[in-house]
């Protein structure tokens, strides 16, 4: 029933036109999509009935899409199959903010998890968070090798808050919550100062595709497209008009002079 309702919502929204993105970028929100459903096929992502991402496979993270702030219906469909909706959701997005929408869970229980990404940066620091999107993994801690957890007791579907770390290279490990054995060792994780990151734990502990962790930089410093012309090339075209006008003017003046001479004669 829920799916039917969102489908009806989609139909209603499909008739609404997408408002053009503002030129200076002030009213835009930025949204990206992650395919984290281990057994789902490659998908297309539709925003208000229009295709926005094509052929995203498991593990694919898109660039941020630029959308005017507002309410949207996001639908995920099998790649190339516009008729079937795998899962859909409504998203409200605010101007100047960044979001990640992730398709998570096994196909039978697929859902969309939406989160806001931090785009406020600190010099020399990295803000990092962890998203647990591995459906069969237990609750986990993420810690420096052998150290105390930086992120504790994250269950499937949980997204941690951002923690602030000094920029640098870290050897991290994913452990079952409260335990010391290692689910996954992550050596040489390089975090650049002034950037924020989300680490997405995806895949399956038992079976394929295997458990792994993706690191993605979040947010960004947005700007409008630059003004890169002063019309010099276009002026050559309008110059022809000026020239034509001048010729016409001269002809008219000539005619006047001609008339005057005639009258004088």
């Amino acid at each position: 029933m829920k799916k039917l309702m969102s489908l009806l919502g989609t139909l209603a929204l499909a008739f609404a036109l997408i408002v053009p993105v503002s030129a200076d970028g002030h009213e835009n929100a930025m949204v990206r999509v992650l395919h984290a459903s281990p057994d789902a096929p490659a998908v297309d992502v539709y925003v208000n009935g229009e295709v926005a991402v094509e052929g995203a496979e498991f593990k694919a993270l898109t660039d941020y899409l630029t959308l005017p702030a507002g309410d949207y219906n996001v639908e995920i469909k099998p790649a190339g199959d516009a008729e079937t909706v795998v899962v859909a959701t409504d998203l409200s997005i605010e101007a100047g903010k960044f979001y990640t929408a992730a398709a998570i869970g096994q196909l039978a229980n697929i859902e969309i998890a939406a989160m806001e990404d931090d785009a406020n940066f600190e010099d020399g620091k990295s803000k990092v968070r962890v998203a647990h999107f591995s459906p069969d993994a237990p609750a986990v801690d993420v810690a420096p090798k052998g150290g105390d957890p930086l992120f504790s007791n994250l269950e499937f579907k949980a997204v941690s808050d951002y923690g602030t770390l000094d920029a640098g290279t870290y050897d991290l490990e994913v452990r079952p919550a409260g335990a010391t054995d290692v689910v996954k060792a992550l050596d040489g994780v390089a975090l650049e100062g002034g950037k924020n990151y989300t680490a997405f734990a995806i895949g399956l502990l038992e079976g394929e595709p295997a458990f792994e962790v993706l690191l993605a930089a979040d947010g960004g410093e947005m700007a409008g497209a630059p003004e890169t012309g002063q019309g010099g090339l276009a002026q050559t075209a309008s110059m022809n008009w000026l020239l034509a006008a001048a010729v016409l003017g001269a002809a008219a003046a000539g005619f006047y002079v001609f008339r005057r001479q005639k009258q004088d004669a």
Binding site: I18, V51, T62, T169, K184, D187, G188, V213, L215, A216
Partner: peptide, 24 residues
Amino acid sequence: KLTTVGFADPLVLSATEIDRQSFH
């Protein structure tokens, strides 16, 4: 219509020392 977007190529973290230098 909407401009479709490409992919952002997230880094796959692993235990092998991959390209530790590439960032810096």
